[in-house]
Simulated assay, not measured.
Amino acid sequence: MKRSGKPNVTSRFSRCTGDYFKETAIPLAWELVTKGFGMPPDRLRATVHPSDDAAFEIWTTKTAIRAEHVTRDGTNWWGLGRGPCGPDSEIWWDRGREAGCGQPDCYPDHCARFTEFWNLVLPQYDQRGDLSGPPTTAESINRGIADGALVPLAKPAIDTGMGLERISFILQGKSNVFESDVLAPLVEFVREHSKKPTTLSERIIADHVRAITFCIADGVVPTNEGRGYVLRRLIRRAALHGRNIALSARLSAGAQRTVAMFREHYPELKDRERFITQTIDTETERFARTLEQGMEQFEKVASRGASAVSGADAFRLHDTFGFPLELTRELRSATDPGGRLLTAGR
C-alpha cells in the first residue's frame, strides 16, 4: 500500500520446484519475450548476481542477448537470512537514452532508462548460518558455501515474477503502468470527477479501486483484522485521497467501471456487482462519519505548527475519535508534505 501510486509497482508470481532449473528457465523466458511478445533483442538487458557464473553463461550462450548486455548486480539475491535463498536474474526493457541519464554506457538499475519487468528468482541454497558479509558479492557467497552457511538444495526452485501491468505498458508503447489499458480507464474516471486532481491521488485511487473490487468479489469484507482490515485500509485510503481532490463520484462508481473493464475475463465481477458496490458504499459512509468526528480535533493538532504529530496526539485521535494511525499519517502528509508522525508519546 505504501508504494502504490508509483509509476511501475506491480508483480505476478509463479513457482516451480525440481522439474527444471535455470538452464531451462532462462531460455524459456527469452523465447517468450522475443518470440511470444516480439520484443526487439537489442532493447533487452539481463542482470545476474556476481556469484552466478552459470546464469551468465546461459544468457550468453543459450540466448541471443549480447554479452555486454548482461550485467552483474549485487542486488540480484533473494533470501530471508535462513532457509531457501539464492541468486536471481532480471530482464529489463530499454526505454531509450532520452528516458534516463543520457549516458551512452548506462546500465540497468542506474536510472529511469531501464524498466525491470521479469525476475527469475533461483533459490538453490539452504542458508543455515550467517554469511561473512552482505550477500552482494561473489566472495561472500563462495565463502558461505565453503564454510557450510549455504548448503545446496537437493531440488533447486524457480520463483518467477512478471508484472502484468509492466509488460502491458511496454508492449502498448506507454511510459508507465497507469497509462496501460488495465489502469488508464480508472485514472481517467478519477480525473473526470475531480475538482482539483493530482497525479498521486489519481493513481492511488485507480489502483485501490481495482484491488477493492476484486477483493470483495472474492468474498472479503471490511473488518478490523486480517485481510478484511487490509481491505478496510484500501477503501479508506482511497476515500481519503478522494476527499483531498474533491472527488464528486462515489468510489463504488469506480468499482462499476472496473467491472465493465474486466467482466469478460472475470464474469463473477458482474454476478457480484451489486454486493461490491453496496459494501464499498457502506464502508465509505462509515469512514465519512469517522472523518467528521475527528477532523476538527486533527485540525487543532495540525494548526499548532509543529513539524510532527506527537504519539500522544495520535493515540488520542485513535482512542477517542477512531482515527487509525495510518489515517493520521495520511492526513498529516496531505496537509504538510514535510510533516512527520512520531510514534513515541511525547
Rank of each mutant, 00 (worst) to 15 (best):
Arg166Lys: 14
Asp94Trp: 09
Ile58His: 06
Gln278Asp: 14
Trp59Tyr: 06
Gly5Ile: 01
Tyr107Trp: 14
Gly148Ile: 02
Glu283Pro: 07
Val182Thr: 04
His208Tyr: 06
Gln256Pro: 09
Ala54Met: 10
Pro108Trp: 12
Ala314Cys: 10
Leu122Ser: 03
Leu120Thr: 06
Asp42Gly: 01
Arg72His: 07
Pro267Ser: 08
Phe117Gln: 04
Asp88Gln: 03
Val70Ile: 09
Asp271Pro: 05
Gly322Trp: 06
Glu31Ala: 08
Ala146Tyr: 00
Pro185Cys: 00
Lys174Thr: 04
Val259Gly: 14
Phe117Glu: 01
Asp105Arg: 15
Ala217Asn: 15
Gly133Tyr: 03
Ala157Asp: 05
Tyr229Leu: 13
Arg332Thr: 15
Lys155Glu: 07
Leu247Lys: 11
Glu326Tyr: 12
Gly161Gln: 00
Thr343Ala: 01
Glu57Arg: 10
Glu299Tyr: 00
Gly338Trp: 02
Phe321Ala: 09
Asp281Gly: 09
Ser201Tyr: 12
Ala239Asp: 06
Leu341Asn: 04
Arg15Ile: 14
Gly339Met: 02
Ile158Arg: 02
Glu68Met: 09
Arg72Ala: 14
Glu292Thr: 03
Ser132Val: 12
Asn176Gly: 03
Leu80Gly: 05
Phe56Ser: 11
Thr61Trp: 01
Gly305Cys: 05
Asp336Ile: 04
Ala206Ile: 11
Val187Ser: 02
Glu116Arg: 00
Ile216Trp: 03
Val48Leu: 08
Leu251Tyr: 12
Leu269Val: 10
Ile212Pro: 07
Ser201Met: 12
Ser168Ala: 14
Gln172Val: 07
Ala255Gln: 13
Gly96Met: 12
Pro40Glu: 01
Phe114Trp: 05
Thr223Lys: 15
Ala25Asn: 11
Ile91Glu: 09
Gly5Lys: 00
Gly74Ile: 07
Ile26Ala: 12
Ser175Glu: 06
Ser4Asp: 04
Phe13Ala: 15
Val190Leu: 03
Thr34Phe: 01
Glu202Met: 13
Leu131Ala: 11
Arg340Gly: 05
Gly242Cys: 09
Asp313Arg: 08
Leu341Tyr: 04
Arg236Ser: 08
Met1Phe: 03
Val220Trp: 14
Arg250His: 14
Pro41Met: 06
